[in-house]
Design a protein around this nucleic acid. Sequence first.
DNA 1: CCGGATCCGTTTCGATACTG
DNA 2: CAGTATCGAAACGGATCCGG
Lengths: 160, 160
Amino acid sequence: MAGVVDETKRKRRSGCPVSVSLEIFGDRWSLLILRDLMVRGYRTFKEFEQAGEGIATNVLADRLRRLEGAGMLTRKMEDSDGRRGIYRLTEKGIDLAPVMLELLVWGARHEQTGAPCGVIDHMATNREAVLKEVRRRWEEQDPTPFLPRFQGSGLKTQKL
Amino acid sequence: MAGVVDETKRKRRSGCPVSVSLEIFGDRWSLLILRDLMVRGYRTFKEFEQAGEGIATNVLADRLRRLEGAGMLTRKMEDSDGRRGIYRLTEKGIDLAPVMLELLVWGARHEQTGAPCGVIDHMATNREAVLKEVRRRWEEQDPTPFLPRFQGSGLKTQKL
DNA sequence: CCGGATCCGTTTCGATACTG
DNA sequence: CAGTATCGAAACGGATCCGG
């Protein structure tokens, strides 16, 4: 039974916030999964698999398990279809929203990305309001938690 | 000549801010190095080696090179001692301060760490002031950039 | 089909010894 | 001191297989 990571051998870091945080998402994929949950509203294995840019299924399964173990997300099976799993952020997970927001702003500024400037500017300027709205949507289990609703938006979250 | 990572084979991600950011610090060590520069004021190879909790020297050298290549920091040799390298954050690097601050706050809240609550609370409450001060110190090349100066402080940065 | 688990070749890491 | 060379051990990525 070799998922991918042998949990018993993971290195313990000392108790600094940054160090400990990196135990949870200090790898190539975990933060992307959290973004998918938080910004894009993804919920199923399939969505993560196709959206994260090419993650292997075994690695994805491993990361989901680890993130669940770290209390960042929960997994449960859909009532109507027992085989389809639904992943949701925990409160600990959604509390990462300020970090995610700052990261989006930083990335959009310093690495010319495809992110729509209007959206990013709005997030940078109306920080508190955006975060409050994110939190409200999460509490209501609204599937599109992060983005302000723009009129003619569409699939803008794909760019974030 | 095997440093550690063959740069020519690194996977390109799509142009989303989060994805692109993770190309730079989506691993176990890069963000710790940036924290050491930003929060602790470390500058030399030796300091990073001893402070990051057990990074191998070859990996450290590789990460420093990569971060330099990504424009996050600069390396130059000390005038007095030609062999001693001095690393400093670039503007792009110091612009990551808001992300770092939110990460510190999140980590201190959700993972019982050794971080002093007073300091973290202060950062969370006086966000703008702290970030402004950080930026000011960076511009002046003050070696202790992040922490508010507390009266009897000392080595509190070790806990961040 | 969906959500994984298994197998296996390749890449990266980590520890340590070594060098200018 | 600031790295580089070497090498065994993990982790990754891709493909395939499987239970529900």
